[in-house]
Simulated scan of single mutants.
Amino acid sequence: MQVNIIGGGILGTMHAFEAVRRGHRVLHLEREAEARGATVRNFGLVWVSGRTRDELTATLRSRELWDDLGGRVPGVGFRPTGSLTLLRTPAEVAVAEEVAERSDATARGFTLLDAAEARALNPALRGKYVAALHCSRDAAVESRQALPAIREYLAATGRYTFLPSTEARSVADGGVRDDRGRRHDGDLVIVCAGAAHGGLVRELAGELPVRRVRLQMMQTAPLGERLTTAIADGDSMRYYPGFAGQAADELARVQPQDMVAEQHHMQLLCVQRLHGGLTIGDTHEYTEPFPFDVMQDPYGYLAGLVEELLGRALPPVERRWAGVYSQCVDPGELVCRRSPAADVHVVTGPGGRGMTLGPVVAEQTADLIGL
């Protein structure tokens, strides 16, 4: 078939990859010269550790697909880094102990380590913490270079065409009309417009159970040594639903968050880029209209926290940015999928899981629509 895909972010690109892999032809439209949304404004983490039990099977499948894709397309920068959630209080350790004893702990690769064992696994962590939860299944990709690398791979098949700086204006009969008035015929259309919930998406699918979430992040100059795992702090166990339980409820009751962290709905995630710099974040803002400026307090808090865990000063911060992603608010859906016509499919709302779940969401969509 001829598949027209709207949206050049991670979901659109992975749907293109899946369609080409199954033998179809793809025309891929992106309104910007390059995808500039949450797809490139994230950690590049394939995050197994915090997913709910209902999401775990899909998440592990997605990690498997990323591993395979990394073998086919080395430019995506896939690496099985694993992660360490660094624990600084007895209440945080109690949450780690609880999840490490659950029936799905082996599937997640959970192991509770003392501080010495954590330092042996990741020698760069010479700072203050009392224990760590190791998740061997977590991984990382290079979010800023993954999509161009995948497109280059797809173009080499001869069955993929990328149309940048091209906005889709209407959809009918499997085809797309763009903002230059050109008609692109096809057999079906998949719309992956990210956080753009209005316009064509609303026209096609109506009001969807999605919201937009804003985040702030930063990246440093090269660290000068290897950070062998991604790292998180105990606040991530408040944020990720995979840690929910009695111990997490007790953590929330007995250990208030830092004032800045609470105000900005923060957790620490940190991963080293291939060039040696650290991507550090993040905040969460749920109420629109979002501010157009970035706030300094969260950056200062995150930098101080990473320095405390590393036991050393951070390199200079080279980049700061904000991003907005689309989050499905229906707890029964992995993402928001709608098919307003037999040949039109809208897929959006992976939340902060877009990079993690992109491959499996595309695989599921392809199975559901019979690609």
Rank of each mutant, 00 (worst) to 15 (best):
I6F: 06
G9P: 11
A16Q: 12
A16K: 10
E32H: 13
A33V: 08
V48M: 11
E55K: 01
W66T: 05
D67M: 15
V73Y: 10
V73M: 13
R79H: 13
T81W: 00
S83L: 12
T85R: 05
L86C: 12
L87M: 09
A91Y: 04
A91L: 09
A91F: 02
V95E: 02
A105Y: 03
E117Q: 15
L121T: 02
A124K: 01
G127N: 11
C135D: 07
L147M: 09
R151S: 06
E152R: 14
L154C: 12
G158Q: 06
G158I: 13
R159P: 09
Y160L: 10
T161L: 11
F162E: 10
S165N: 09
S170F: 00
A172E: 14
D178N: 14
G181F: 09
R182L: 15
L188H: 01
V189P: 02
C192I: 11
A193K: 05
G194Q: 10
H197C: 08
R202T: 11
E207D: 15
R212F: 14
R214I: 10
R214V: 05
R214N: 08
L215R: 08
L223K: 04
R226S: 14
T228G: 01
T228Y: 00
I231D: 05
P241K: 10
A244D: 15
A244M: 08
Q246Y: 01
A248W: 03
R253C: 07
V254Y: 03
Q255S: 09
D258R: 08
L268G: 04
L269M: 15
H275I: 06
L278H: 10
E288L: 15
D293P: 00
Y299S: 10
Y301M: 10
V306L: 11
E308K: 14
L309Y: 13
G311K: 03
V317H: 05
W321N: 09
G323E: 04
Y325K: 01
V329Y: 04
P331I: 09
P340T: 08
A342V: 05
G352P: 15
G354I: 09
T356K: 06
P359H: 05
A366E: 08
L368H: 02
